[in-house]
């Protein structure tokens, strides 16, 4: 090993244990980028489909045709076949993108605003208010995820509105707790204490110094919730708590397809694939966002082995 140029050694926490390789110029480093790109592309595609549904869909998504029930794909002019009442499946999937995006994004936004505010106030004001809010969150956390949404959805009755309310209620404690935790950490930062010694009042400190610095964890949390919301919404729809028929709703289409899965498996399969693609898109984009905004979650070769102090 007297040459000036030494081959790139292996990477990762255990490179110390790895057998030294003699060849190979570049250790793999560009893996995550593809995921980021894919996630954003999927979301863009779904948005385009949702916006342009009127132009893209070959048929009216709600027009039934009892004569053409459960046609398999590529038959009778229906590229992806028809559902149990003879509606064109492709058109319903295309229009379903609207509802899917809507029920993934809107509850997240509402929850981020309300949960974020509750977390900010709870963490910054502290005292008995914080204690009460945290106890309420504890109780809400005692209902495992979807159960609370089911209960609320069932009590309020089926419909988009009650579905969104149910999803917001379920996600608020998560958001609130994450933001509160971040507020508690930021509150102790010297820059917040500097603001106190400048003479700023509590409200100004909360708005100018605390809130901007808890925005990143809030965004990260919201992006993760959006992916989960796709699934949660589909689950509620599947149980009949989703949009009122005949709105195109992937979860409800899946439910309809389930009933007919013996004779026409394509209905359930295709509507499920649509759900998975959207969820993958949100999850990948969320991961990308988290890598960018949350340094703690960024586990790369740079940090492994403790990095260098």
């Amino acid at each position: 090993m007297s040459t000036r140029r030494v081959a790139d050694p292996p990477t990762g926490p255990f490179r110390a244990f790895a057998r030294r390789r003699t060849g190979g110029d570049n250790p793999p480093k560009r893996q995550l980028k593809f995921g980021n790109w894919l996630g954003v592309s999927i979301l863009l595609l779904v948005v385009i489909v949702a916006v342009g549904a009127e132009w893209l869909a070959p048929f009216d998504p709600v027009a039934t045709n009892p004569a053409e029930r459960l046609l398999p794909p590529f038959s009778g002019g229906h590229v992806l076949g028809t559902d149990e009442v003879g509606r064109d499946l492709l058109s319903r999937l295309i229009f379903g993108a609207r509802f899917a995006l809507f029920v993934a994004v809107v509850p997240t936004l509402i929850s981020a605003i309300i949960g974020g505010l509750i977390g900010l106030i709870s963490g910054y004001v502290g005292g008995w208010l914080d204690a009460v809010i945290m106890r309420i969150f504890d109780v809400m956390f005692s209902f495992p995820g979807i159960l609370l949404a089911l209960g609320i959805g069932a009590a309020l009755g089926a419909g988009t509105g009650s579905m969104i309310i149910a999803m917001v209620v379920v996600t608020i404690p998560e958001t609130g707790r994450v933001v509160r935790g971040a507020v508690l950490a930021v509150r102790e930062e010297p820059y917040v204490e500097s603001a106190v010694t400048l003479g700023l009042n509590r409200g100004m400190i909360a708005i100018r110094h605390v809130a901007p610095n808890v925005l990143n964890p809030l965004i990260v949390m919201a992006s993760l919730q959006t992916g989960n919301n796709v699934i949660l919404a589909a689950s509620l729809s599947f149980l009949g708590l989703g949009a009122k028929p005949p709105t195109a709703d992937w979860g409800a289409m899946l439910s309809g397809g389930k009933a007919a899965m013996v004779t026409a498996p394509h209905v359930a399969t295709l509507s499920g694939i649509a759900i998975v693609i959207l969820a993958v898109g949100f999850n990948l984009a969320g991961d990308a966002l988290r890598d960018k905004l949350d340094p703690r979650a960024r586990i790369s070769t740079v940090r492994t082995l403790g990095g260098l102090k």
Partner: peptide
């Protein structure tokens, strides 16, 4: 100690410990 962080590489030179270049020592 052969413990550079994952993104660090020895790009030249030798480290001889007790007469032996440890850069070519096996894991």
């Amino acid at each position: 100690l052969g413990l550079l962080a994952g993104n660090g590489d020895v790009v030249g030179g030798t480290i001889e410990f007790d007469g032996r270049n440890v850069l070519s020592v096996s894991a």
